[in-house]
Amino acid sequence: MTDAKTKRSTRRSFLRTLLAIPATAFFFRNIRLTEHDDIVEVDGWILKRSDIL
């Protein structure tokens, strides 16, 4: 039950992150979410979400 919930929320936040990334950033190849909502890893760069808005 907890697992399913975590999976759902991870998927949700992943989608949220993708939506938050503007079209100009589509050349980014590799996106990884972190345990912090405000931080993403893009092509090995560890960035603030605001960096790519």
Binding site: T34, E35, H36, D38, I39, E41, G44, W45, I46, L47, K48, D51
Partner: peptide, 15 residues
């Protein structure tokens, strides 16, 4: 890298 970004000290790239 996450801490560095969160504290706005800079940004880290992992090889």
């Amino acid at each position: 890298g996450e801490e560095f970004a969160r504290k706005d000290l800079g940004r880290i790239h992992i090889s």
